Each structure stands twice: as C-alpha cells, then as structure tokens.
Amino acid sequence: MFEDVISFIQNTYKTKEFIPLHEPRFIGNEKKYLNECIDSTFVSSAGKFVDEFEEKIASYTGAKYAIATSNGTSALHVSLLLANVEQNDEVITQALTFVATCNAIRYCGAQPIFVDVDRDTMGLSPSALKGFLENNTTVKKQQCVNNKTGRVIKACVPMHTFGHPCRIDEIKDICNKYYIFLIEDAAESVGSFYKDKHTGNFGQVGVMSFNGNKIITAGGGGCIVTSDKRLAKKAKHLTMTAKVPHKWDFNHDMVGYNYRMPNLNAALLVAQLENLDNFIHSKRKLANMYEDFFKATDYTFVKELAECKSNYWLNSILLQNKQQRDEFLNEANSQNIMSRPIWTLMNKLPMFEYAQFDDLTNSEWLEERVVNIPSSVINMN
C-alpha cells in the first residue's frame, strides 16, 4: 500500500539500511573547536565559546540578547520565571506540543490551559485563543483573570511546530490586549522566519533548543532570546545560580538555577552555526522533493504558508485517518525507515488530564493523521 513512498525515501537517502528521522551532521569545525575548548581547560559553564555562541545566535536571529542554557526545557522554565509565573497561576499553551512545554509550567507550580491549533500551521490558533479569552476571562487591574478558576493567566506559550511558524503576530496582539506575557516556543524553528522576522522575536522572550535531533545541535543545550535588556540580565542571573559577581565571595540574592550551557557544548554550537544556512538550504531542497512527490499521492505534504520561511526541521505528511496512519507507521518502520506520529495531546496525559481545555477539534484531527518522515540533511549542494 505504501510501496511508492518507501521506495522514494530509500532512493532519496540512497540506502535500504536504517534511515533515521533526523540525525546530526558534523562537517565543519566541530572537532577543532572541541579540542581548543579542551586545551583551554574551560569545559564547564565559563569559557569563550559560550560568549561567542550567545553573540552569534543573537546576531543570526536579530535579537539584542541571547542567554545560553543547558537545554530547551531549562530555557522555558526560566522564561516562565521572567513572566513572574508562580504557584497557582495559569499559562495558556497548545495541547498539541512536546511535553517539555507543560513540564516547565508545572515546575513553576502553575496550571496549563489548552487551546486549539490551526490545521495549516499545527501551531496555536489566534482565533481559538481570542475565543477562549473573550468567553472565559476578565481583565482586572491589568491582569487577565480566569472566570472559572479565579486564577491569573500570566503567560501564553505558542509553539512553531516542526519549524513551521504559527500566526505569531496575531497571537502577540491578542496577548497585549489581555496583559499576557508572550513566550515563543521556538525550540524547533531555529532558522525559520515569519514575515521576514526570525521566530522567537515576536514575544517578550523566545526559547530555542539544540537537542541532538535539532537542526543544529550541541548534544543538548538551549537558549533564550530577547531584546529586553532587563529580562536578559535577569535570565542570565537566574541561569548562573543567581550568584552576585565577585572575585571570590559566594553570595546569591535569590533562588537560582544551574542552567548555564557548558563551554564544551557551546564549542559544538559555534561550529554548527557556521553551517546552519547550508543545512537549511539542503532541508528546503528535500522538502521541495517531498512536496513534488506527494502531489501524485493520496497523502498531503505539510508545507510552509505564504510569508513564512520554514527550516523544515521535520517533514510531515497527513494520512487520511488514524488507521491509515498506524498502517503507514508499521510499514515504514518495518522497512527501516524511522517515522513517528505527532505527540499525544497533553490533556490526555495523566499529569495534565485535570487541566482546563477548550475545543480541540483541530488538535484531535491532526493527532490522528500527522506522521513525521526522515528529514536529515541529505547533501550540501
């Protein structure tokens, strides 16, 4: 039933051996910079590569400041703290997301609220967000209060799913109207642009991930980007155990976190950044090949919208229903082609089944149909 798809993927990657979903490419100065880092003996959270990475990722994204973190989840946690999210506050996000988003909300003692996504972006729907806020909240003293729970909704965390930008400008306008702090989950969208602006720059802060399966990687790692000097200063302070700078004294002025990115990881990332544009060029070429192929099939390839430039981190197709999705996953994986479904909706997980959620029709529709197919960089031409 899926022979043509499997054959196309095998021919594209020129192998019938195992084809991973997304493997890293180390083709530049990674070993050189790692050796330099080791020779310097600065392998932990202090060293020149951490500072260099922060400068270069800020420049690349157009943000004024970048704060390197140990991973994307820690960056989300700190970003929520920057929004003053506290015990029993609430945070709006999408049910169709990776679990780290909701875990970070719970780290703060806050409660998630799930609203729907748009089918074409798979990211938070502005119309669903607007509808939920109009029907369920009241603005009091420049705070958005949930009429049902009486709690304050402090923040909103939309995600740019698989590298495809959501309608973040509309979301920003809605959050501004309701006094909600906007945190962009750009973990998957390094190198993606919406209306010529890099993702992560629409909210007060943006969060990125450099996990081993991301478009550029340090094995782990993340960062916060912002153009707000005050937020940047506080973010760096929190990620460095809130230590007050001094040549020898150990004084800390608040509860901080050991979330600083090690210099070893940063050395990898500096090298990876040097090839980011080449990686994106290759991945967009692969996406075009997939798009052309799937036009002649019964399956839909998920492509970027107008005014978007996606990094196509993970390529996705839509099957006709859950049964066909499961049949494809079984067949592809049995043929050594790693494929996976989209995430289980967060409101279905036992940790979050108590959470308030709005109509999730689009999220449920996508959950039953979306499959990610191999998306590794195939060449550098």
Rank of each mutant, 00 (worst) to 15 (best):
D292C: 03
N71T: 12
I378Y: 03
T137F: 08
R119C: 07
K348H: 14
W365A: 09
M351H: 08
R167G: 02
M208V: 12
E327Y: 08
L133Q: 00
F210P: 02
M380D: 13
Q10N: 14
W365M: 11
N201R: 03
T121F: 08
Y107T: 11
P245T: 10
I280D: 00
T97D: 14
S363H: 06
F2R: 08
S316M: 15
L268W: 01
V371E: 03
V244F: 08
A287R: 00
I19N: 04
K195W: 07
T217V: 02
Y299R: 07
I280F: 06
I67G: 03
E55V: 09
T239S: 15
K309F: 08
K348M: 14
A128I: 05
K64V: 09
E86I: 07
W343E: 15
Y257W: 07
Q335V: 00
E90Y: 02
L182H: 01
Y299F: 15
F26L: 13
T61W: 01
K309Y: 12
T226N: 04
E307P: 00
G212F: 14
F193C: 03
N103E: 15
H246S: 14
I9W: 05
F2D: 06
I373P: 01
L366V: 05
S70G: 03
A296Q: 14
C156A: 12
G221I: 07
I9C: 05
M261E: 05
G219H: 05
N135T: 11
L318I: 10
I180F: 02
